[in-house]
């Protein structure tokens, strides 16, 4: 595979490490630690991940390059990568 680091450009897969699902959001710090909704949010965040077939926004790190984290929209079936970008940018392409 060849992955486009938003900064360094196209680089070989072996320079990168997969860092998980880019769509999960770390819940805000608790206002009230016993809040059930808060509890459920953390449960979801820590333990549950989707395993989507097809397009998926993923988190990668260019750990043997610039070491930056970034997002990649990758098709989990075909391994196509439609777009990559810094954390604060919206990804384009795929069928999303």
């Amino acid at each position: 595979m060849l992955i486009k680091c938003p900064w360094c450009g196209d680089r070989a897969l072996q320079e990168f490490s997969y860092q998980g699902d880019a769509t999960v959001q770390r819940p805000a710090e608790p206002a009230e630690p016993t809040d059930a909704k808060w509890d459920d949010e953390w449960y979801q965040f820590v333990y549950l991940r989707d395993d989507p077939k097809g397009w998926h926004d993923e988190l990668w790190q260019h750990n043997l390059g610039c070491r930056k984290h970034f997002k990649a929209r990758r098709n989990t079936v075909t391994h196509e990568i439609a777009d990559t970008g810094p954390m604060n940018e919206e990804l384009k392409g795929g069928d999303k």
Binding site: R26, L59, Q61, N63, R67, H69, M87, N88
Partner: peptide, 13 residues
């Protein structure tokens, strides 16, 4: 190191 970089890049930019 990777954990700290993750936190600074992703969670607490």
């Amino acid at each position: 190191m990777q954990h700290l970089e993750y936190l600074l890049d992703v969670e607490w930019p």
